Simulated assay, not measured.
Amino acid sequence: MKWLVQEFLNNGSNIVRIINALEHCHVDYLLVRVNKDSSLTVLDKADKLPMDKSDSILQDFISNEAIMVYGSKAFAKIATEMGLEPGSFMNEKFEFEIFREALGDELLNHHFMIGELSELEPIAEEFFIRPTGNTKLFTGMRVTKEDFLSWKERENRENSPYIGQSLMISPIQEIKAEYRFFVVNQEVVTSSSYRVGNNTDITRKPSKAILQYTKKIVDKFPLAKAFVIDIAETDKGFKVVEYNNINTSGLYGCDENAIIQAINKLKEDKR
């Protein structure tokens, strides 16, 4: 398995960690830039400048090879369009409606509503809102009724980026801690906390109980050959926050070497 890694993004630390792990694991990779026309340019790993004959270098690298990608959601989409295998593990199941159908009340925010910003109305004085599916217009957050209505009014314009974008709103849930699990071939290969209480915390290791719960959920709904699942610890027990695409997910306190080793053991058939 070879890898294509997108050049440093806003959160460059994840890219640096993946590159260091690829080199540690002696895995062949190319560093690439995603251009505005969705083409790729191969960069020199040392000076990060475009390489001569980039197109031929890329074609020679991916020809008749299993290729994994890591970077942005746009990059993952390009990998799918290029027909790379396994490429991106994103599929049509990464939608909250499908999560709810498969998991029921195991889903933390199972009492949600979905619509465009212009269609939605406040459901309480304060509630939770986030984009759905493969869209990351903003990070999920709490919003007050007043702020939501002001936001909705501001975006009532022809060139709003929210036109055609589905958003999800749901009641606020009190969460004690949240954990991220990287799953390959229905096995958790690495995990860590990412929030404890109201604070970012990547140091807490999941308990045996939450690992057992996660395995139960993974066996019940393994929506891809490799994926990321976030689990919350609440007063009502453990709940599924969401599934994420492994090609684009942040690492937090997880072991990137374990992720790469597990991915590279996969067969070329990603599903």
Rank of each mutant, 00 (worst) to 15 (best):
C25D: 08
S170F: 04
A226S: 13
K45Y: 08
T214E: 06
D219V: 06
P222K: 09
D60N: 15
Q261I: 13
G12C: 07
K53W: 05
G83I: 09
E256G: 12
N11C: 10
A76P: 09
I163P: 01
R271D: 14
A209E: 15
F61R: 00
H24D: 13
K145G: 10
S118L: 04
A124M: 05
E81T: 07
F112S: 08
N247G: 01
T144N: 05
T200Y: 09
N247M: 02
N264C: 15
E233V: 02
Y29P: 05
K236F: 11
L22Y: 03
H111M: 14
L4N: 07
F181Y: 09
N10D: 14
F127I: 02
I18P: 01
M168H: 01
A76K: 14
D105H: 10
S54H: 08
N91A: 08
T190W: 04
T248Y: 04
T144E: 03
P122Y: 08
I19L: 15
V183W: 03
N244W: 03
S38P: 01
N247P: 02
Q6N: 06
Y213A: 04
E81S: 11
F238P: 07
N185C: 13
S193T: 04
M90G: 08
V42I: 14
E95P: 00
D219R: 13
M113A: 09
Q165H: 12
L108E: 03
N156Q: 12
K205L: 12
E7M: 04
S166C: 07
K267W: 04
I123K: 08
V183T: 15
N14G: 13
A74C: 06
F99I: 07
S38T: 10
E7W: 00
L117F: 03
E146N: 13
I231Y: 02
W3S: 06
P86E: 04
I172H: 02
T234F: 01
N35D: 12
K176F: 07
T234A: 01
G197L: 04
V16A: 06
N199P: 00
L266I: 13
S88C: 12
E97C: 10
A124P: 02
A258Q: 13
M141N: 09
E126A: 14
K215G: 09
L30R: 07
L4T: 04
I57C: 12
N257P: 00
L30N: 02
N91Y: 03
M168W: 07
G87V: 00
I260S: 09
I263V: 11
G87C: 04
K36Q: 15
D28A: 09
K48R: 10
K205H: 08
